[in-house]
Design a protein around this nucleic acid. Sequence first.
DNA 1: GTCTATACCACGATAGAC
DNA 2: GTCTATCGTGGTATAGAC
Lengths: 222, 222
Amino acid sequence: MTEAATEASVDTKTRILTVAEELFAEHGFDAVSLRHITTEAGVNLASVNYYFGSKEGLVAEVISEHCAPINRERLSLLAEAEAAAEGKPLRVETIVDTFVSPVFTAAEAADGSTGRFCRLVGRVMGDRDERVRALAAKQFPEVFAAYQEALCRSLPHLTPEVLGTRLLFMAGALVQSLLFLDQIGDVMPGPGEKVDVATLRHQIIPFMAAGLSAPRPDDSAA
Amino acid sequence: MTEAATEASVDTKTRILTVAEELFAEHGFDAVSLRHITTEAGVNLASVNYYFGSKEGLVAEVISEHCAPINRERLSLLAEAEAAAEGKPLRVETIVDTFVSPVFTAAEAADGSTGRFCRLVGRVMGDRDERVRALAAKQFPEVFAAYQEALCRSLPHLTPEVLGTRLLFMAGALVQSLLFLDQIGDVMPGPGEKVDVATLRHQIIPFMAAGLSAPRPDDSAA
DNA sequence: GTCTATACCACGATAGAC
DNA sequence: GTCTATCGTGGTATAGAC
């Protein structure tokens, strides 16, 4: 941020980040020690604290590096779709697609297994440490507002408040699905129904679109 | 389990459990040390290991004590509804209600703040430690199967596989909503829109019912 | 500025005395 | 069944070399 990075510092810093990302995705944030990371990266233990301030700082950096481009692509795809629609409200499925697709695209683009990336994303939002979640949530308001606005135009029978809540439901379903991807077999009793990322992506869009488009809560009260 | 519990041992064990539940809900599973728990409970540090084997064992016990009654009530409410329907398929909203209500009932019944309980439930499923999630998932197949069957009857146009996946989406949305309840203000950009448990409960049912009832994935493919 | 060596304190776990 | 003492490992802070 403040200093012009020399080659050496960039090397050390990125080496830490690369290894950390790998190990965090594989074993979780607090199952991986700084000693493990620094040994694997061939750097000194204290350099983590030097470059990132703390372990949490390192975690935050890893999170940022993954979430920022996804959110940027979301806004970009949404803007594209809106430009193409020329003022007309978008189909809800289209809106959902721009929200969901960047996540799966990133998952497939990640070198190595896609499962690793999914677990990392899932871990971020599902983390029990409030500070970690807060870091992830920090990037969200802008994205949230854009989708809320788009949905308001497409679903004029619903209030912004209701749509806001439903956006949270949507994000929750997505995140939790990613988190449980690797142990779906444990919770599904059926015989080896394996659910892969492609299936998930294909099935989640109609679910979300229908949920978002549901009648007003008051209309279906028990 | 194996030994007949004496008064003293029960006292120590339950005292640990009570304090642990409180502190876990408040600060998270690994933010609370065994020393913190045992000091607060007025028992010796080693007694946790004696009664629960490990910290993870204690966590598992706390989880079990919360999830088991919720899942029992789910099955009970579902069975009641099915008995009342006399063989006819249930309304999807009814099914969703039996799934969601026990969670919120438990949240409101918890002495102290309801937020604490919500966070605990959220933490269990959102935990980054796979072993913790696996413990929670262990109780699920039975519940999962019952709901999958009920939904198949109510939504005959959908396959069990699709409904199974949507059940996961539903559970995910619920869990993640609980987890983020206390920091919704951070992610929602609007001016102080506070979302309380009652609102959440009221709004989540139509969302889920509509999502579950959505057309087959193939029908709405892009 | 960048990096290293090292010391510190809190944690979970366990062995063995009582 | 309960306690004390202790072990290995964790994150963190700092003094000082380059």
